[in-house]
């Protein structure tokens, strides 16, 4: 039984990590190409979840909701980029932090205005409602396995996009020398909008998929956003590979820490003390890990050169 539980927790950790990757990939891409720190990325996650929940409730189809979440988050991202973000590329990080913090306030209150404060609920699609058996006799929800699958597919897709396509070539060129690719006749402004919308769509996808596991509410993006920051700091800002490794590490350490620490502490202290101390320490574990990584490699595990 204990092994089955452990396998289940490892899968939970993977699912969490994959979801963090979807957020972190967009953040790190936007930072790598445009040099922008976007706090409002969590708002795009929220937009995706709300779009999916609304469309799924209206049409009865989760899949239409998923499409809507991608479209809505990409559109919100493009709008954000064109109206506000575009003016921030040349500014220092303080201005970027503040302007995107202001965007969070606008998005959160705007969403609360439209949808109210009551959380929305999103059902898991019937196709994925089942469970798959695990060795040891227990079962694991198919939907969570599907999330892991989507995350892996997105990781492969992004890798191919960046290494094999013309758009990817431009993204890489934009990371290394934006003036040069402008001089070569690439429309930088459009490229930036496209990259931003792509990152936004990934955040929206994450929001929609997680929306079926948790409730869809205002402010749901913020804890995830901060974890995504931890992920890209660990992985090295600007690196997609770093984001993937960082996300999986953070997902696994967080989930397994919460599961294993109370058990480990219970071997030499009372069960209730072990539970409360274990929970408190487990909630700090990923930050301690981040501090360790930074103490050894201040620019993250997969820091881009220069």
């Amino acid at each position: 039984m204990q092994t089955a539980l452990l396998i289940e927790q490892i899968l939970n950790g993977l699912q969490f990590g994959v979801m963090l990757f979807l957020m972190a990939a967009g953040l790190t891409l936007i930072f790598g190409v445009m040099g922008l720190i976007n706090l409002a990325h969590g708002s795009l996650y929220m937009v995706g979840a709300f779009a999916c929940a609304t469309v799924a409730a209206a049409t009865g189809s989760f899949w239409l909701g998923l499409v809507a979440s991608l479209a809505a988050a990409a559109a919100a991202g493009a709008l954000m980029e064109i109206t506000v973000i575009r003016r921030l590329y040349e500014r220092d990080h303080l201005d970027q932090v503040l302007a995107t913090f202001a965007l969070i306030l606008v998005f959160s209150e705007g969403t609360r205005w439209i949808f109210g404060s009551i959380p929305l609920y999103l059902n898991i699609p019937p196709l994925l409602a089942g469970a798959i058996p695990l060795p040891g006799g227990s079962a694991y929800p198919l939907y969570r396995v599907a999330i892991i699958g989507v995350g892996i597919a997105v990781a492969i897709g992004l890798h191919l996009l960046i290494t094999r396509t013309r758009l990817g070539m431009r993204i890489r060129a934009g990371e290394s020398d934006r003036e040069m690719i402008g001089a070569l006749g690439v429309d930088i402004r459009t490229l930036y909008t496209v990259v931003f919308a792509l990152g936004a769509a990934l955040a929206g996808l994450a929001g929609a998929m997680v929306g079926a596991l948790q409730s869809v509410q205002v402010g749901m993006g913020e804890p995830v956003l901060i974890l995504a920051f931890v992920v890209i700091v660990i992985g090295g800002i600007g690196s997609i590979h770093g984001a993937l490794v960082g996300a999986l590490l953070v997902g696994l350490i967080d989930t397994l820490g919460r599961f294993l620490l109370p058990v480990a502490l219970a071997t030499f202290m009372g069960p209730s003390a072990a539970a409360s101390i274990g929970a408190s320490v487990a909630s700090m574990l990923i930050y301690v890990f981040m501090a360790l990584v930074l103490a050894i490699r201040p620019r993250g595990l997969f820091a881009a050169a220069g």
Binding site: A102, L103, I104, L105, V106, E109, G110, W113
Partner: peptide
């Protein structure tokens, strides 16, 4: 907070 956000922007 919506208006605070706009003012801040």
């Amino acid at each position: 907070q919506l208006f605070l956000g706009l003012l801040l922007l």
